[in-house]
Computed example of a mutant assay.
Amino acid sequence: MRKFLHYAGNIAGMIIAFVLYAFLQGFYFFPKKIHMPMKSVGIALITVIVLWLIFWLYKQQLKYVNNWGFNEEPHWKWKKVLVAFIGFILITIGAVITLNLVSGGKTVSTNQQELNRISLQSGMMFKIMVGFIAPFCEEVIFRGMFFNTFFTKATSFNKWAGILVSGFVFAFMHDPALSKFIIVYWVLGCVLGWVYLQTKDLRYSMMTHMAYNLLGVI
């Protein structure tokens, strides 16, 4: 019963976090449809509340099971920053190699086509979402909450199996049609999972994710 409650509670937390993330996307991808007084201030306040809530859900999970030692203080170490930087190099090289393997670098995924379309109507709000908010939310959900739920025991097998599986789930959410581009997203997800497991802190996989995403929007 305790295991069932653990899985059920954590999965519910993941679903809530994903719904909150999708809710937040509406403000940034379709800002012209949002009508409220002092819109910029309102969106900023809603963003802070939603991001705080998503990270709070993640930390609540860690209170019950945390065999890996995730999110322990001190949070900032130069060695971990170096891991994040190495992750950025790996993720950039991996993206270039896999994109050339699957398409010769001449075409982009359906997900990227849709993002390109949305960027035309949302402007700077799109860059904020893709560059900062999306990496924050996706790392909490696909790395933090995922490991807290399905790979809780700190073993070598769980480390590498978790990296591969969480990477695939991340890829599937970006390419549910299972096109050839899912390989690209899978590699990206695996590198981010590796950064998280090496540092035991989401702040560093977020840094890697943000740096990579910003390459495409700046």
Rank of each mutant, 00 (worst) to 15 (best):
C137P: 02
G131I: 06
F126V: 04
A154Y: 05
E114D: 10
I141T: 05
W68K: 04
G105E: 11
S156N: 04
Q113Y: 03
I91D: 07
G162V: 01
S109T: 05
T155V: 04
P74H: 12
D201N: 15
G162Q: 03
V191T: 12
D175L: 06
N67R: 15
A84P: 07
T107V: 08
P176W: 11
G144V: 09
L178M: 14
Q112H: 08
F146C: 03
C190I: 01
S122A: 12
K153W: 08
V187A: 13
G193L: 01
E139A: 03
K77V: 07
F132Q: 01
L164E: 00
E114T: 13
G193K: 01
F88Q: 06
P74Y: 11
V191S: 12
F151A: 07
W68G: 03
F136D: 05
M124F: 12
I86R: 02
K106N: 13
M129V: 04
F70Y: 15
I89V: 15
P176T: 08
V96P: 01
G69I: 03
T98Q: 05
G189S: 03
I86D: 04
Y196L: 09
L115D: 03
H75L: 14
F85P: 01
W76F: 15
Y196D: 00
F172R: 02
F147T: 00
G87N: 11
I91P: 07
I86K: 09
T199I: 14
L202R: 02
E139L: 05
T110H: 09
F172I: 09
V191P: 12
K77G: 08
F168Q: 02
W78Q: 07
S109D: 08
S166F: 00
G167T: 00
A95P: 01
C137N: 11
E73F: 09
F146A: 10
F85L: 14
G167K: 00
T110W: 03
N67G: 15
G162A: 06
S103P: 07
D201M: 10
I118V: 15
Q198L: 14
V169K: 00
I97A: 10
N116P: 03
F70E: 12
I141V: 13
M124L: 11
G189A: 02
V169C: 00
E114V: 12
T107L: 05
I91H: 07
L202V: 11
Q112Y: 06
V184F: 08
L178K: 03
S122F: 07
S179D: 06
W76K: 05
Q121I: 11
W68T: 04
K77I: 06
S122C: 05
M129K: 05
L99T: 13
A177P: 03
F151L: 08
V195F: 09
F151N: 07
Q113D: 06
F126K: 04
I97Q: 08
D175S: 10
G162I: 00
F70G: 12
I182W: 10
G69A: 02
E72W: 08
N148D: 15
V96W: 14
F168A: 02
A95D: 12
V130R: 07
A95F: 14
M125A: 11
M173T: 13
